[in-house]
Design a protein around this nucleic acid. Structure first.
Lengths: 135, 135
DNA sequence: CTGTATCCCACAAGATACTG
DNA sequence: CAGTATCTTGTGGGATACAG
């Protein structure tokens, strides 16, 4: 079982986390699957398999892990209906919806500016290819 | 030398990246150091060592790598002054400032909501400790 | 259908030492 | 000062098999 990292190292002498909440939150959302799951659930409550298809490319394992983390962080609510076969629905909590709005802003930014990034990369790579990098 | 991963590595039929810009951008910003560097440079142009001290806890290697990626993506400009000892200044490009604003929103959100996340975790862990998890 | 449990590997990332 | 070059370890994450 994957263990969920504990952040209580907070306030301690640790160099990374010390002072700020920002770093703790970044440890939550600086994760592509987390962002994508939040984004997907923003649209509607979804079942596990539905979510899996929606997030084309995610493995069962990563989806489960991501959802558990989000549940632990109070961003996603997990509702189990003890039917057979089992039915599990995931929906954003209020906190999750709140964060989801930020995710949407990121998506909007992404769609608007990705071309510029792509162009910058091509320029950079071209320059790098020309410059005689030392052995 | 660390190579900068190329998006196209997963190209073509891959399930993850294909269509959307969001995923490509998430691969850029879903990274705590990237977020922190952008956040730091939002305040002011900084030299390498200055940045390193500011981002307490980052290693030289990771800072270098992060800055190279950001430079490649056109988010950070790198200015080298061929003095001795060398002086290298990093500043956000316009695109970088633009993204930096999003970073700031994340920081604001973090400071506002981290306590809620922390509480959710404690509740979750307490519940988990009580429930007799199956072997 | 919704998960757990394993095996496995590539790579992210820290520590350390060296250089123009 | 601003990096490179190595070495090593942890872990993110895929593939697969199995279970309630």
């Amino acid at each position: 079982m994957d263990t969920i990292p504990d952040l209580r190292s907070w306030g301690g002498a640790d160099a990374y986390l010390r002072t700020c909440a920002s770093r703790a939150v970044l440890d939550v959302i600086a994760n592509k699957w987390v962002c994508l799951v939040l984004g997907a659930l923003r649209e509607e409550t979804m079942r596990f398999g539905q979510l899996r298809r929606r997030l084309d490319g995610i493995t069962q394992k990563m989806l489960t892990k991501t959802l558990r983390e989000l549940e632990r962080d109070g961003l996603v609510h997990r509702a189990v209906y003890p039917t057979v076969p089992p039915r599990v629905e995931y929906r954003l909590t209020e906190l999750g919806q709140n964060l989801g709005r930020l995710m949407t802003e990121i998506r909007v930014w992404a769609e608007e500016h990705m071309p510029e990034i792509q162009e910058a990369r091509e320029r950079y790579d071209e320059r790098a290819a020309q410059d005689p990098m030392p052995v």
